[in-house]
Amino acid sequence: MSVAIIGLPYDASSSFLRGAARAPQHIRDALHSPSGNPWSESLRDVLDPQWVRDVGDLVLAPDASARVEIERGISALLDLPARPLALGGDHSVTYPVLRAVNQRYSRPAILHIDAHADLYDAFEGDRYSHACPFARIMEEGLASRLVQVGIRTLTPHQRAQADRFGVEVIDMRAWAAGVRPVIDEPVYISVDLDGLDPAYAPGVSHWEPGGLTTREVLTMIQQCAGHVVGADVVELNPHRDESGRTAMVAAKIVKELVCAMYPASS
């Protein structure tokens, strides 16, 4: 089974700033940049068309119809069959992606790397905001476990939501104390780039100091023992990434995700 990279250029569910809809091409540009090479740290050429393909971007309207199109597009990849690696876009795209993934892989665990829990029941009156996808995912029973790493913005409401859904929250205080995720079942990995400290990834809409390093995120992906059935990298905002630094970080994460989804034994 191959890995399929797909762009989800959607940011109509963003709060504060728009711009993430422009991210997929910026990540691709970094991935193909002659300043680096396509090899992962485990000596895989992630641009080798024999086992990874880029199927381009979905055409998405800035309204609720995008969720339908995302679910349909990811379902089509799974039917190839291919494991989807989605380039967002804002974090709201993860919900329809998981609806599609569940059609082939029932209730995978989720490893969610983020500064924010994204568990609001509704945010600014929108139940499908990028601040809400994991509330929708857990309500629908689309995951057997939700393990969140890097969290540092919990509100009382989101803490109550985490308790309600049995979310395993490894906030940055717990991370600093040495707590690490242990996942050995089928898993979907969702990486919000603001999970990293803004010193490493400033090109995001919501700067939240005190986060993960690039190396910590890469190691987490590399050491994930579960069978990775899909993944996404979301919330790059090119308007805030004038140097292209965050796009390069995103591309590096994509390389390691591809290898996690297509291990050397495959």
Score class of each variant (00 low, 15 high):
Gly7Asp: 04
Pro9Lys: 13
Tyr10Cys: 13
Tyr10Met: 15
Asp11Ala: 14
Ala12Leu: 05
Leu17Ala: 14
Gly19Asn: 10
His26Arg: 15
Ile27Asp: 01
Ser35Asn: 11
Gly36His: 14
Gly36Asp: 13
Asn37Cys: 09
Asn37Gln: 09
Leu47Gln: 15
Leu47Cys: 12
Asp48Ile: 04
Trp51Thr: 11
Gly56Asn: 04
Leu60Arg: 02
Pro62Val: 01
Pro62Ala: 06
Pro62Met: 01
Asp63Ala: 02
Val68Thr: 14
Arg72Ile: 03
Arg72Leu: 11
Gly73Asn: 09
Ala76Lys: 13
Ala76Trp: 06
Leu78Gln: 07
Asp79Tyr: 06
Ala82Arg: 10
Arg83Asp: 00
Leu85Arg: 12
Ala86Glu: 03
Asp90Tyr: 00
Val93Ala: 11
Tyr95Lys: 07
Pro96Ala: 11
Val97Ser: 08
Val101Lys: 07
Arg104Lys: 15
Tyr105Asn: 06
Tyr105Met: 06
Arg107Leu: 06
Arg107Trp: 07
Ile110Thr: 10
His112Met: 07
Ala115Ile: 05
Leu119His: 12
Tyr120Pro: 06
Phe123Lys: 13
Glu124Ser: 12
Ser129Lys: 07
Cys132Thr: 15
Phe134Cys: 04
Ala135Trp: 15
Glu139Leu: 11
Glu140Pro: 02
Glu140Gln: 14
Leu142His: 02
Leu142Phe: 01
Ala143Pro: 00
Arg145Asn: 09
Arg145Phe: 02
Gln148Pro: 05
Ile151His: 06
Arg152Ala: 04
Arg159Asp: 00
Asp171Pro: 07
Asp171Arg: 06
Met172Gln: 14
Met172Phe: 04
Ala174Asp: 07
Ala174Ile: 02
Gly178Ala: 03
Val187Gln: 03
Tyr188Val: 02
Ser190Glu: 00
Asp194Trp: 02
Gly195Met: 02
Gly195Pro: 10
Tyr200Ala: 14
Val204Cys: 11
His206Glu: 11
Gly210Ile: 02
Gly211His: 04
Gly211Asn: 07
Leu212Trp: 10
Thr213Glu: 03
Arg215Tyr: 12
Leu218Ser: 07
Gly226Glu: 09
His227Ser: 13
Asp232Lys: 08
Val233Ser: 12
Leu236Phe: 08
Asn237Glu: 03
His239Thr: 08
Thr246Gly: 10
Ala247Thr: 04
Val254Cys: 14
Lys255Ala: 13
Glu256Asp: 05
Leu257Ile: 03
Met261Ala: 09
Ser265Asp: 15
